[in-house]
Each structure stands twice: as C-alpha cells, then as structure tokens.
Design a protein around this nucleic acid. Structure first.
Lengths: 208, 208
DNA sequence: ACCTGCCTGTAACGCAGTTACACCGTCGGC
DNA sequence: GCCGACGGTGTAACTGCGTTACAGGCAGGT
C-alpha cells in the first residue's frame, strides 16, 4: 500500500511545515499522520513521541540557521550587526521561538552567535570574565527581546489599559513623552537602539 | 449539600494555589473542581472558561504586585533599583511569567514599573521620544531577561552542547574567557551588570 | 401553588497523546 | 521451498483534557 515507505526525514519535514504554517499547537500526531496519508503509529515508530519530534525540529532549525558573520568596521558596530542578524534569523522563524521557549531550549538558540560575539568582544580589548559577561549580556538581550516581541504579537488588542489620563506627574510637563509612550512600539528601532546602548557601555573600559 | 455556596473568589484562590504550586499546566478544570469538592460545571458558572480564569489570575497577581518605588541617589541607580525590584517581583512569581507569556499579556507586566521609570528618566534630563525610548528599552530588557531566565530553568540538563574544545580562535588566546563561558551563568549578577550598562548609555546625552 | 433566577450535578461530545496487538512484506538461513 | 525474524503499518482502544446540553435544587417574590 504505502507509496515508497515512510522515512523519518519525511515526518520531520511535514511536521516542520505544519509548525511553520500554523504554530506548534497545530502539530497533532493524528493531523500529521493524516497529512502523510499514514497511521498514527507509524509516526510514533519513526520519531518516538511528540516531545522528541519537537526536539528534533528545534535541532534541525537551529542547524539550518548556521553561524552568524559580523559586518562593520568597529567592534561595536560588528557586535550590533551580529545582534541584528540573530534577531532577524529568529524573527524569520517565530514558530521556532515558541517551541524553543516552551521546551526550555533557550541555550540552544544562543549558540549560532556565540563564536562571533566572542571574537568581537575579544578584539575590542575585553578579556576573561569581563569578556564572557559582555558576550552573555548581548545574548540575553537579543533572545529576551525577541521573546518579548513574540509574546506581544500573540496579543491582538493589547488594550494598553486604563491609564487614567494626566495621572503621571511628568505627563503634564512632557506631553511629547506621553504621546510617544501612547504610540505603539517600533520594535526594530527600539532593538537597535537598546543593543547599541548596551554594547557601548560594555565595551567602555573601566566602568563597573 | 454545598458547604456555604461556592464563590468566584474561592475559585480564583484555589486556581492561584494550583498554578503557584505546580505551574499553569497543572490547572485543569476537573482537578480544580475536585480540589474544591464541587462539580466542573460550577467552575464554569463562576469563571466562564479556562481562558478567562487565567486572565483573571494574571490581573489579580499584577494588581497584587502594585507599583514599584525606586531607591538610590542618582537617576541611574534609581532606575537600576526599579529594574531589580521588578525582576524580583516577577521572579517571585514564576508561574505568573509562564501564564503571562503564553497568553501574550506581556504589556500588562510592564506597567507596575512604568510610572517610576518615566519619572526617573525625566529627572535625568531626557525628554520626549528619547525618554520614551529609554523607558521602553529598560522595560524590554527586564522582561526579556526574566523570560529567558524562566525558560532556562525549565531545562534541567541544558547540555551546553558539543563545543569542540579549542575550536574558537580566542579560546586558545584567552583561556580565562573560555573558562568563564563554560561556567554556569549567575543571572543576578549578569542582570545587574546588563541593566547598569544599558542605563548608563541611555542616560548619556547626545549619543545615538 | 407557581414561576423565575441563581447555582449545582450527571453524563456526554470531541479531540488530544499514547499504546497493545494483530498484521503484512522482505530477507537470510536451512 | 519453507520459516522465522525483523522492520514497518494499521485497528481500536485507554486516559485525560475543555466544554456543554440537560435535568434538576433551592430561594424568594407574587
């Protein structure tokens, strides 16, 4: 009956498609089996269970991302470029973020950028623990930011809440600020500004 | 039969307990009913459905957190203190983070610190869009960091991966860095350092 | 006495992950 | 040629989940 026998790779491919298109919740074992024109048990035979399937998907996608190369002249701009590229890669795979987060595989997503960051931080003159701290600060910053972004996208009518108007003292003194805070965030802009600010401080010698 | 009639508040309280102790996945309608010694339908009568129940829990907890007061002398240290306190509050409620994140209510969790941040940023001399950007950068930084922290805690044997030893160029030149990166992260330390670095840059005038 | 609104319980529906078990084909050994 | 092992598939079930249709119970107003 079976067309040419089912392979693990086929299963992963179909699962990846499903998750890419409709998110991780849409990945059901029965649905996957139906899509492949086979029975549930075959899926289990090839990939174990849903958990392993998701793990395999994460691994697959992270490898597909590969390493990240910096561009720019100064170490600071090169680090920022790495951060932006990492964010871009992650952002292009929102489904991955969801899966990774709910499975606690965040470390895994740190790695593609790690080596590049180490190199740049080092060439900026940072050594030892200080350098490691800088690398990790940037990693956390990027991944954290992307997580927040993804979470925000899930909320349609975010309903910024019942801000009683004119409540904040500064709101009166600085209407421009109030207006800016009322406007929706421009994540790209905010991200670049944040990373730039963070990196600038991290690379400055002798601060604490 | 019923002891003294079931009330919405009782339901919320029990649900809160359940989530606090065993995480949001442990909150099942049947389990909740059993814990309250009542039937499932009563739960539905009082809170609508699981979604609304979770929403109500988030609302409850965020209100319980209340506003956050800064301490310290300079605006920078005061902002850092707000960030640390917000992190502390969130960290004391890991269950809340999970729920909030998977429901896309991240904005909600930004608010307790918002007013304090606005005030401090303003008193540091930032105005208008620049000030708003600074406030948001700190908010994203804090919440993002906590999200990453929570995700990491879910992964028991994180398995930092197959780092082929000596692969990175800098690993040879800077063994201290390699060692520091191999060690587990100290989140508290890294958080403070990151926020401090970010704030320092944000408050510096005339940078871009 | 009866109706109405609030509240509770019984029993089911549909869908999820998972698995026990029977089956079918192919291939190596006799 | 036969037979058993093994890789792979299919049927049908189990459990547990959120949710709901429906049948009441109990108070109070008329």
């Amino acid at each position: 009956m079976s067309r040419t026998a089912l392979t693990r790779e086929e299963v992963l491919e179909a699962a990846d498609d499903l998750v890419k298109q409709h998110g991780p919740d849409a990945l059901t074992m029965r649905g996957l089996a139906a899509r492949l024109g086979t029975a549930v048990t075959s899926i289990y035979w090839h990939v174990g269970n849903r958990e392993s399937l998701l793990d395999a998907l994460v691994e697959r996608t992270v490898e597909e991302m590969g390493a990240i190369q910096p561009t720019g002249r100064t170490p600071a701009t090169r680090i920022v470029s790495v951060a932006r590229r990492l964010r871009g890669e992650l952002h292009a795979r929102p489904h991955l973020i969801a899966v990774v987060h709910e499975r606690g595989l965040t470390e895994r997503v740190f790695l593609p950028a790690q080596r590049a960051l180490v190199r740049e931080v080092h060439s900026a003159g940072l050594r030892g623990a200080r350098a490691a701290e800088a690398v990790r600060a940037v990693q956390f910053q990027v991944v954290g930011f992307v997580l927040v972004e993804c979470a925000r996208e899930l909320a349609p009518a975010q309903a910024t809440g019942r801000e009683r108007p004119g409540k904040t003292v500064s709101a009166r003194k600085d209407p421009a600020l109030a207006r800016a805070l009322a406007r929706p965030v421009d994540p790209e802009r905010l991200f670049t500004a944040s990373v730039r600010a963070l990196v600038k401080s991290l690379l400055a010698q002798g601060n604490n």
